[in-house]
Amino acid sequence: MTFVRDMGEAYRSHITMVRGRALRILGVEAAAQDVAQETFMKLLEYRRKGISEDNTAAFLYRAATNLALNRLRDAKRRQELLEEQASHTSPSASDPTDRPALRRILGLVGREEAEIAIYYYVDGMEQEEIAELLQMERRTVGRRLERFCAKAQKLLGLSTENHSND
């Protein structure tokens, strides 16, 4: 748990994490770079209100997640992102986890479920770790993840059997 006071230092030490985090969610470098800048502006804005985050890395990680998710939830931007990915990448070669489908669904389900799903499926965090980062009960994380899966299965037209998140 580290508070990094100097903005320049906060930027240089955390930009890799923030940019990588946005890229994993969005899949397009230019969009990830934009989100990274917005994330640091968010930190600046937060501090200008006279509030200090206890843990700079955790603050930035969550802020980047939310800002990237905003883009996926914006229908027009989501479509642009998906088209951009399709034009630059070969899903079968570079995206074996079928991220385009996941991204599409993240933009369609509720924000709370989508956020948890990002931590679980995009970051590979376990439910306990998500609960700790978001400072919530593990059971709440589990419930939201279940809701996400139910909605995703519906959207994908899949049976609800044979899938687990425990």
Partner: peptide, 12 residues
């Protein structure tokens, strides 16, 4: 039991 989407790590 399988995951709905693949996760980015080979093991838990």
């Amino acid at each position: 039991m399988t995951e709905l989407f693949a996760r980015p790590k080979p093991s838990r």
